[in-house]
Design a protein around this nucleic acid. Sequence first.
DNA 1: CTCATGGACGTTATACTATAACGTTTGAGG
DNA 2: CCTCAAACGTTATAGTATAACGTCCATGAG
Lengths: 174, 174
Amino acid sequence: MAKRQNPFPRSGHDHDRCVSTALAAAEEVCERSGERLTPLRRRVLELVWGSHKPIGAYAMLDQLKGDGKSAAPPTVYRALEFLLGCGLIHRIESLNAYVGCSHPGENHVTQFLICKACGTTAELDDRRLGDAIGRSAAEHGFNIVSRVIELSGTCSRCRASQPREGQSDKGVAV
Amino acid sequence: MAKRQNPFPRSGHDHDRCVSTALAAAEEVCERSGERLTPLRRRVLELVWGSHKPIGAYAMLDQLKGDGKSAAPPTVYRALEFLLGCGLIHRIESLNAYVGCSHPGENHVTQFLICKACGTTAELDDRRLGDAIGRSAAEHGFNIVSRVIELSGTCSRCRASQPREGQSDKGVAV
DNA sequence: CTCATGGACGTTATACTATAACGTTTGAGG
DNA sequence: CCTCAAACGTTATAGTATAACGTCCATGAG
Ligand SMILES: [Zn+2]
Ligand SMILES: [Zn+2]
Ligand SMILES: [Zn+2]
Ligand SMILES: [Zn+2]
């Protein structure tokens, strides 16, 4: 039962580095698979990586419009579909929002920890947990094809700073 | 590791009994908590229990309209909110749909198995699994408030009848 | 080089899901 | 009876996602 490293980003971390790492990984993933990471797709991936809070499609759309280019819902949804297909982003079902994948290119089953206070969402890839879930389903004769595991609550940082009740910039970037 | 009973309903089961059991349990839950299970709320609960497939709010709305009564979205959404609050139904986030709770009145953490072939959704209440998830989150300093665990795939019945690929009446009742 | 092909994207319209806001009814308790 | 709050009716609107069709352009076969 090895102690895992905290999947939440630290408060003062160099987020530009998160973004550039994600973009570089995306280039490589697409390179390998022969897919085209067009400027638009790359831009949408940047927007998803704008923070560690899941972001809604229409919020991205507003930012795209701000770029001076024209943009309509299909613009962003098509890019999102592509990025989801490449495993470069994940969709958070309980928020109707999207977040960058922390382990692009790696085969992984994912669980999300979503802080209701600060909105930050961390991606776990707890194999033991994934196995336990698979085993439980298999015991009932069920063959899992896809999983949605989204745990909402409060991260350690928010609990430390607000021992009782939380508010502030909560939730999805709008 | 006791063998659990299959949470999926059998194909020829007496579903009227599912419905009447659910309604009786609802009466009791509301009785106990002093809430009012009005005719409308009761009707919506019946509609949710129309099958073991999650059903969308607007599908219920159509059925309500068919009753001869007038009905608008808030009609059904208010009833759903009430039933969710009472723990009589669950929302399936990945389908934007609702399904009856198999264990109303009991304190439980829930996992859903959603058959992509037949649409039937089963509710697990695997305490071991729930504990494992709680432990994993706790290891990362995360305090879980609510959980969304939705596993999509194929149930044993559908796998038996369609060894390769599935279609038919798949998915949410529309 | 030319043209057929298919992918990416622009554009418009529409479907689907959910809530805000306000007025009316209803029923329990005083 | 009267009052009050909950439940409900009604209209409008917000928020999320996709259908359908046309254009552009890179690629590669001929
Ligand atoms: Zn970062
Ligand atoms: Zn937090
Ligand atoms: Zn049944
Ligand atoms: Zn099935």
